[in-house]
């Protein structure tokens, strides 16, 4: 009798323990989600703030108890922002610089990566190592001299000055070379035997196989033009050649809050919008490029 009682007690204990661990698991899960969702809200809040502020009237924005959703949606802020900042002109400038520099940069990167991945020449490894070594040097060190150089060339306030100095990226060459090296050499030798020229082989075989990397490079390069600030400010501050980020900072700057912040937020939203589109549609490529780079923009 007592034995039986003992046994049921044990079973009860076991059940209790498993119930406890189940509750523990649920508690842990709830905490996990609570933490993640709180962090996600904090991360996303600035975007939300930007969007709701951009459609508020100045009066509503300045209330001491802020509204979490605008009472009146005032889209004319966007029109005002677009006109005040001359954003159309800046947008065209940025697109010209972005597209031209991306195309030229792709050509240079593909040719160099091909040479490093497939061709044999004296000093190849030493040269490649030296190039990688320059990646450690902060860009500001180059800027001092490049500023004087482009001045000597008479390039100040041109598209050229925004495009040419940054056409070669060692990092992109490195990225693409790694990609090219994964393509079996036998393919290349077979093509050689068939009498295919290097250029044709590059165009027909290597570029299609390395397309994802090339797309990553394109996106990062375009985003770079869209977000570049320091160099354009130094060398192209005339409005005719100004890029969008510089225009944004210059046209709507007023730290002391005298600015019409809803209009300013509308301008920020206009500049951020293309980036969101890129993010939504091309996230996969960006993440791939980013996780191998550690370089912003």
């Amino acid at each position: 009798m007592s034995e039986l009682k003992n046994k049921t007690m044990q079973e009860k204990d076991l059940k209790k323990v498993s119930a406890m661990s189940k509750i523990g698991k649920i508690v842990v899960m709830v905490l996990l989600y609570a933490f993640l969702i709180t962090m996600a809200v904090i991360v996303i809040f600035p975007f939300y703030f930007m969007l709701i502020s951009s459609v508020k009237t100045l009066e509503e924005y300045q209330r001491s108890i802020p509204t979490l959703w605008p009472e009146v949606i005032r889209l004319s802020n966007y029109v005002e922002a677009f006109n005040t900042g001359n954003l159309g002109r800046l947008f065209v400038n940025t697109m010209i610089v972005g597209i031209v520099s991306t195309l030229l940069s792709l050509v240079i990167t593909v040719l160099s990566a091909f040479a490093f991945a497939r061709l044999e020449f004296k000093g190849k490894n030493a040269l490649f190592a030296a190039l990688l070594g320059t990646m450690m040097i902060p860009g500001e060190l180059f800027t001092i001299t490049n500023y004087a150089t482009v001045n000597d060339f008479g390039w100040m306030n041109t598209y050229t000055v925004l495009i040419v100095p940054f056409l070669v990226s060692i990092f992109y060459i490195y990225l693409l070379r790694q990609n090219f090296m994964q393509i079996p050499n036998e393919l290349y030798l077979a093509a050689k035997v068939d009498g295919t020229s290097d250029i044709k082989y590059l165009w027909k075989v290597m570029i299609p196989l390395a397309l994802p990397t090339l797309i990553s490079i394109t996106i990062l390069k375009m985003m770079g033009a869209w977000n570049s600030y320091v160099w354009p400010r130094l060398v192209a501050n005339e409005e005719a050649y100004q890029l969008i980020t510089n225009g944004l900072r210059n046209a709507f700057t007023d730290v002391d809050g005298n600015a019409n912040i809803p209009v300013q937020m509308a301008a920020v939203a206009i500049v951020s919008f293309p980036l969101f589109l890129v993010f939504i549609f091309l996230r996969k490529y960006i993440m791939k490029g980013v996780s191998r780079s550690g370089i912003k923009g």
Partner: peptide, 21 residues
């Protein structure tokens, strides 16, 4: 996806949002 969102932003532009906040 949400946590990756700030990566694809313009640091000047979003800096202005933080300044406003």
């Amino acid at each position: 996806t949400i946590f990756f969102l700030p990566y694809v932003t313009n640091s000047i532009a979003i800096g202005m949002v933080f300044a406003a906040m």
